[in-house]
Amino acid sequence: MDKKNLTVSMNLREMLNFRRKVLLVVLLALSFMLLKRYFRNPAELRLSDWFNPRKRTDVITMTDWLAPVIWEGTFSREALRKHYHTQNLTVGLAVLAVGRIADKYLEMFLQSANRHFMAGYRVIIYVMTESHRMAPGTNVKAARSFQVFTIPDDIWWHDPDIVRMKTLGKHIVEHIQHEVDFLFSMTASQIFQNDFGVEALGLRVAQLHAWWYFKDAKDFPYERRPTSTACIPFGQGDFYYDGALVGGTPLEFLDLIDVYLNGVANDFQKGLNSSYESHLNKYFLLNKPTKLLSPEYNWDSSFFPPPQVQYIKVAQHSRRRV
């Protein structure tokens, strides 16, 4: 072999060796990321270890797809506490607070969350609000912190739900997915009244609508226009879900946001404008929630609670007044 060919052969071998090293580094990095993700996802308890649907025979406690419906009395706080206190858990709570709703309710929301939301666990509260507002003044407990995401003052009012989801999706990708194990999204017009704890954690968590839970399914206000991405035809649908409270893991939340924004874009091209709640209900029809929260977790304060609602966790200021 002449000198020129020998040099080429050596260069090829060096390139192959370099590529092997790069591939090895990539594989090691991916392995590390998978291990990190594995240890960030708390191991699940068996449902029977903490949940007893027979404790509440007056309400629906299990769906057709065997997801638990969480009512007061159906779960063991002690079993959950023993499990989750070993998990090094961090929970995120995102809230949109703009305009007069922020003026009236944001401080009350934050004070109540500071007292009742995931007490005893690390919590990061993400506040999405206009750029002119100051950071929240609430004194937070130890192991709790705030992050403020500013929204330009001149865009949120076009469609607050789209702005909220775009903003939240951007931050989930950039950092939230690395900061928290579970994430909830709420509105500032809600106030925590009692403990809202780890019984609510799950892969995909849906909130049963307090009003429509007690109504006939044929009357649910689903999107019915066949050309809409959010359409649920008559005769289909499981429950009616409330858009004011949604939870899950960050990556599952990101999937919801992606499907919602794509659905909005598709409808816009057809001259349609379906609500966020309509898209949410279609999403949960196709992607069943792994846990459902009873109306106790978001009761409309303008209605007197029926006997089934024994322990209100969150009160929603009447939407007719906000």
Score class of each variant (00 low, 15 high):
65 W>N: 12
19 R>F: 13
284 F>G: 01
272 L>C: 00
290 T>G: 13
230 A>R: 00
236 Q>I: 03
209 H>Q: 10
293 L>N: 01
311 Y>E: 09
273 N>F: 11
264 V>H: 04
37 R>K: 14
4 K>W: 04
314 V>Q: 02
71 W>M: 09
189 S>G: 02
289 P>W: 11
320 R>K: 15
275 S>Y: 04
88 N>R: 14
255 D>A: 14
278 S>E: 12
20 R>C: 06
84 Y>Q: 03
225 R>H: 08
314 V>E: 09
96 L>N: 04
253 F>L: 04
308 Q>L: 01
150 T>W: 13
289 P>M: 10
103 D>P: 05
50 W>L: 11
67 A>L: 07
264 V>W: 03
11 N>T: 09
311 Y>G: 00
204 R>H: 12
31 S>M: 13
318 S>V: 00
203 L>E: 15
153 D>Y: 07
71 W>K: 07
136 P>D: 04
172 I>E: 08
91 V>T: 06
144 R>D: 03
94 A>L: 03
39 F>L: 02
188 A>G: 15
200 A>E: 05
170 K>T: 15
191 I>E: 03
92 G>A: 10
115 R>C: 03
215 K>P: 00
316 Q>K: 04
240 Y>A: 10
240 Y>S: 10
79 A>E: 10
85 H>N: 14
51 F>H: 07
193 Q>A: 05
275 S>C: 01
121 Y>C: 00
306 P>L: 07
223 E>Q: 13
272 L>M: 07
271 G>A: 05
192 F>K: 00
219 D>Q: 12
293 L>C: 09
1 M>L: 14
83 H>L: 03
